[in-house]
Amino acid sequence: MNNINPGSPIGFLMALLHSRVDRTRDERGASAVEWVIIAAIVVGICLAVAVILRAALVGEAGDIGNKIQSQ
């Protein structure tokens, strides 16, 4: 660091400032944000597939129901 006494008020403030700057440089927060974005994308893809499958199943079920009623 420098020659400022950490016991003095200025030294304490400098040490506090350095510790906060070091904490903000930590990359855990950025990693968490990336995981949230990835999870949101995966959920969106799953929802899209579920909507497509539901539409296909409802259509086929309707066709089968119509064929059963016509016989």
Rank of each mutant, 00 (worst) to 15 (best):
Q71S: 12
A56Q: 14
E60A: 15
S31L: 14
I10P: 00
V42T: 11
T24E: 07
I68Q: 04
A40Y: 07
S19L: 10
A39G: 05
I45K: 05
I64Q: 07
M1N: 14
I38Y: 01
D26F: 02
L16H: 04
R54K: 09
S70R: 11
S19E: 14
G29E: 04
I4Y: 02
R25C: 13
F12V: 03
R25S: 10
R54I: 03
I45G: 06
V51D: 08
V42H: 04
I45M: 10
M14F: 14
S19I: 09
V21T: 12
D63Y: 10
I10G: 03
S19T: 15
N5P: 05
A32N: 08
V43H: 02
D26I: 03
M1H: 09
A56R: 12
V51F: 12
S19K: 11
A50N: 05
S70Y: 02
R28V: 15
L17E: 11
V33N: 02
T24I: 10
I10V: 14
N3Q: 13
E34D: 12
M14K: 09
I37M: 01
C46T: 12
E34Y: 07
A39E: 13
V51Q: 06
T24Y: 09
E34I: 06
V36N: 01
G44V: 11
A15W: 05
Q71E: 09
S19N: 11
N2H: 02
N66Y: 04
G59K: 11
E27H: 01
M14A: 12
A30D: 15
D26R: 01
G65R: 08
Q69F: 12
G11C: 01
N5Y: 10
I52N: 05
L16Y: 02
M1A: 15
Q71M: 10
L13R: 04
I4R: 00
E27S: 06
L16T: 14
V58N: 05
I45F: 13
N66T: 13
A15D: 15
A48S: 12
A55Y: 03
H18V: 15
V42G: 01
R25V: 11
